[in-house]
């Protein structure tokens, strides 16, 4: 009997960019871990005490892998536009092709835009071990 993996993310080796491996029991777990990994790349360490901004986000995509890329790129767009760090994520609902979430975090003095985009290269979002595992490469 397989046990669902605990939600987690890790950085895999990539010479020029950032490659993330995400694990979780559900699609919502994966999307949440992806956002947390992104926030850590944007600004390592605890988020600063600054005025907060909240974004309600709803997305639809063709499949869960596309949903993962769209989700990260949505957060990057908002982070760049609003100089905002998505440090707290609540995924309310996530399926194969849709997502509804609340993302909140501090508004910064400058946009935390070390990451340019989530790419489709080497993208996978698989069912495994009673849960899900995904990999995505971010352009740094």
């Amino acid at each position: 009997m397989a046990f669902a993996p605990s939600p987690s993310f890790e950085h895999l080796s990539h010479i020029g960019e950032a490659r993330l491996r995400l694990r979780g029991a559900s699609i919502a777990d994966i999307l949440q871990q992806a956002a947390l990994a992104l926030a850590e790349l944007l600004l390592p360490g605890p988020p600063p005490q600054r005025p907060e901004r909240v974004h309600e986000i709803a997305l639809e995509a063709d499949d869960r892998a596309a949903l993962l890329v769209d989700w990260l790129n949505e957060l990057l767009y908002l982070a760049d536009r609003d100089r905002w760090l998505p440090s707290r994520i609540e995924v309310h609902e996530a399926g194969e092709t849709h997502l509804r979430a609340t993302a909140s975090g501090p508004v910064m003095e400058c946009a935390p835009s070390q990451v340019k985009a989530a790419t489709w290269h080497g993208l996978r979002f698989d069912v495994c071990d009673g849960g899900f595992e995904a990999e995505v490469v971010l352009d740094i």
Partner: peptide, 27 residues
């Protein structure tokens, strides 16, 4: 520039079947 690339990669991925284009890498 980052957003222009994001927008058009997304647009083109959806149209690849229409153009009968198969690729070894979606990027």
């Amino acid at each position: 520039g980052h957003q222009v690339c994001t927008d058009y990669v997304r647009l083109m991925l959806g149209l690849l079947p229409e153009w009968n284009i198969q690729l070894p890498d979606r990027q």
